[in-house]
Each structure stands twice: as C-alpha cells, then as structure tokens.
Nucleic acid binder design. Structure first.
Lengths: 252, 252
DNA sequence: CGGCACGTTGAGCGGCGTCAATTTATGTGG
DNA sequence: CCACATAAATTGACGCCGCTCAACGTGCCG
C-alpha cells in the first residue's frame, strides 16, 4: 500500500565533463543492462534526472493499469509482477532481477502490479528522456526488446508448470529457477546455496498453489535429500542434477 | 458510424499502389501487420524472396529449440505455440492470429513448437533479408516489439487463469478470448457467433485441464445459457456481459 | 453399412485445498 | 538476557474439484 519510501539524491556531475557519471561507473546496469547502450554523453544527460530509490518488501512501485511516468533499473533485489481477480485471488506472473528494467516503451500503462519482493534498489528516470533517446539509439530498443523476449520465454516456462506440473515439480522448478537467476554474476552457472526471495505465501502465488501445499512439498524435497533448508528461506542444493530431475519427473 | 468507417477502409485506394507488389495489395499484414512498416521498394525487394504456404491442422512450422531461417506472416487461420515435458505432458502457451508474425529478431531459436491449429495461410520470407531491413527501418522493429509485448500481456492473463481460476472460469475465459481475437477486423468489438479454432483436447492443453473436464464445463455453460453450441465448434454468445461475468466469478 | 475420430456422460478416486492446531522464527520492551 | 507478542512455517484431518478410466453417442467418409 505504501509507495516509494526513501529517495537518495544523486551526486552532482559536471555537465561539461565527457566522463561517465560517478554513480554509473560501478553500476551493473551499465554493463549488462540497458544503460550499456548509452554513450557517456547520454549517461550524463540521463543522470541529471536520475533518482535512486530503495523499496522495502511489498512496497508497490506501480499498480495494474497505472501509467508509468518513470522507467526504473533494478540495481539490487527481486521485484514481483502480480495480477489479481476481482475477488482477490492473486497470481505472480513474473519476477524481475538486476539489471532488469521496469517499464516498456510504446505503452506507458503497466498491465501488472509491480512491487518489491525483497529489499530493492532502483535507479529511476523520467519516461520522456528515455523515449527521446530511444528514437536516436536503436541499440537501446534492442536491449529492451531482448529483455521482453526473455520475459516471454520465462512466462511460457511458468505456464507449462502452472498447467501441467504437479505441486512437487512446481516447487522444484521454482527453486531451480531462483538458483539460476538470483546471482547477477551467473553466466548460466547455477548456485547451490542461496536465499529464496519469496515467502511461502508468495511462492504459492507464483506457483498457483496454497502456502500449505508449498510447505509440504518443501519438506518432501528435504526428506528426499534434494535440498537442505537452514533458516526457512535459506536453501542448499547438494546436487543440481537431482533437483533438475524432480522438475520434470518421468514417473509422475 | 463504425460500419461506414469500415466500408471506407475496405475500398481505400493506395496512392502508390502501382509500385506495391500485387500480392501485397490486398494483404492485411501490410495494413496492420509488420509489412506496414515497409516502403514500396522494400516490399518489392522482399516479395522477390517471398513464399506463400498453406498449413493444415497440426502441421508443424518449427519444433521447440529449432532455428527459424524464415519469418512468416500469418494471413489466415490460427497458430498454436506449445511446450512439452519430457514425459509428454503438453501445454499450449499461446495462440497467434492474422496478421501476427512468426519468428523474432535477435534470436533465431524458437522456444516453443509452432504448429497450425486450423488451416493456416502464411507468407514467409528469409531471415537475412528481414534482418537487414530491420537495421535501417526502426518502425519494423517497433512493430515486432509491440507484438511481443502484447504476447507477454496475454501470457500473463493466461497465467492468472492457469494458476488461480476454476475449470468453469477457464473455459469461459477461453471463449471470451477467442471471441475477442478471432476476427481480424475486431476493433475491440467481440463477436457473438464464431467457430472455436481448437478441439476439446487442444482447449484442455491450453487451459491446463483434461478434455473431459472441458467438455463438462461447456455443457455447464450451455445449461447456464451463457453460450449455445450448434456444431461442437460453433459457439453463440447471447450476452457477452454474462460470459464475462463467469470469467471472473465473484462467488467461486 | 461399418470404421473412425471426436465429443459427451458417468463412476470412482486422489491430489490439492480448506480449516485448524502446533511449532518455529523474529522482533520488542523490561 | 529473558519473557512476551506476533508473524511465518509446519503439520494434521478431512472434503471437494478435477483426473482417470470407461462406456456411449454423434457425425463423417469410404
């Protein structure tokens, strides 16, 4: 229900400097995110209107149907995209990780509610400025397109799980998904020890289950020695192949 | 007023029609599809390598993981995008209608199997030619991006159905979806009489159900007088609002 | 007419949801 | 540091929605 809480002011940058803004220097989005498509000059122009913000779990960035007047680069943390039926049933339709960009060109209205799952740091800039750069920088649109295409593929994968997988397979698939996405430095290498970014309730909303069922499947995976659970959210995967096998069991 | 506009559009004469290839003249894709982004010269260039094809139900255009060496514009009919688990459980993750484009730039590999649901006519062109035009024609990429973004939104909608809706709601949602997409001339106006492009089995694969359950829900909708079924595939919707109400029942 | 594909209907069962109790983590003030 | 409160997660009992298996139309075509 709360919106953006804390806003940090950006460090001032010399307008006439051809250098990359200080804040951008160590920013991951400049390497793998959309900002990588921008020149030093564009980064400076953009940084004049940039505002970094921290969101706390369940802080809402934008509501379904709302017009986004700012794009936002995720610098840290996990963001969930949710939809709801009129009577309150909720579905998480996607997760976003650093350095994903929130907001799309050509249509400012978001079709999902965008909210923080974990603590999240974003770098936000006004729509108009980015849209102007889009016209002259094809590479920027390429990157946005690439992200959207990737989101669509992941949506398809989740749809297979929602429509055709058992509760156990869905939970295993989710753990696999997190393991292969949570580390921004992942080069396809899944990590074997990580913290789940979602609560049991949220996992249920992601997987089309109830929190009780999710909990039961987790204890089942624990007893099958596919995972170890240390502090509810902390997961260890001794053997990734074993986990992968459960995601798509031959003998259901 | 709408009918007048519609009629006007149908008889509209293209100023440069002399330069546009004959095949493109009456093609819907040139108006609302991606070809609308191309100049007469580009259309001529493209038409030299164009091949029109007819696909029959269940003909496969490309298999999951395969590299598409041709884009294809849907001129007529419905195409289904499917995914499968290793043990053969199938999920339809999306439907494509005229004038949608099959294939995406930047990544030739398709993540879903692409196959005809109904009889389908496509206009196919080699990847290389289109990709070259993409570099010099931003509008072309805009349109592709727009379609992908739309696909993503529809995927999200389906995910809500798969994860959180009852069997009855899913079937009603499907009928609503078809009613608002089957007519290429739809300007948001849902039609009340149409043929379902999918068999019961395919509807089940789309909705994460079994064919028996789909069948039962259809008879239930019939008894509730939400729909009329004439020849199994032919549906009449007396009151669209009534159908919409079932899609998202308050009292589940 | 018979064969076949497709759809409908029925009977019974099981996986997951519902409701509720208990345990475990997290935080707060004395 | 320990009671205490609150939220989050686990576990159990039971019921229902949708799956499974099977029989039975129905329409189409040779």
């Amino acid at each position: 229900v709360t919106t953006v809480l804390k806003a940090e002011r950006l460090v001032r940058v010399d307008v006439h400097s051809a250098e990359v803004p200080v804040l951008c220097l160590s920013c991951e989005a400049r390497h793998k995110g959309v900002c990588g498509a921008l020149s030093a000059g564009q980064l400076i122009e953009l940084s004049k209107h940039t505002r970094r913000t921290t969101l706390h779990p369940n802080d809402v960035f934008a509501y379904e149907g709302e017009a986004l007047e700012r794009y936002a680069n995720i610098l840290m943390g996990v963001v969930k995209l949710t939809k709801m039926t009129r009577d309150g049933r909720q579905q998480i339709v996607g997760l976003q990780f650093a350095p994903d960009l929130l907001g799309r060109p050509l249509n400012p209205n978001t079709s999902t509610t965008i909210e923080a799952a974990t603590e999240v740091k974003v770098c936000a800039f006004p729509r108009a400025i980015v849209d102007k750069m889009l016209a002259s920088t094809p590479e920027l649109e390429h990157r946005m397109f690439l992200q959207t295409a990737k989101e669509l593929e992941e949506a398809h994968e989740l749809m297979l799980a929602l429509g055709r997988k058992t509760a156990l397979e869905r939970v295993a698939s989710f753990i696999w998904y997190i393991g292969t996405h949570i580390d921004p430095e992942h080069v396809g290498q899944p990590v074997r020890y990580f913290a789940l970014p979602l609560s049991r309730t949220e996992m249920a909303d992601f997987l089309g289950l109830t929190l009780e069922t999710v909990s039961r499947q987790i204890t089942k995976l624990r007893k099958l020695e596919v995972i170890r659970v240390t502090n509810n959210r902390d997961i260890e995967v001794p053997d990734m192949a074993k986990l992968k096998a459960v995601c798509d069991t031959e003998t259901r």
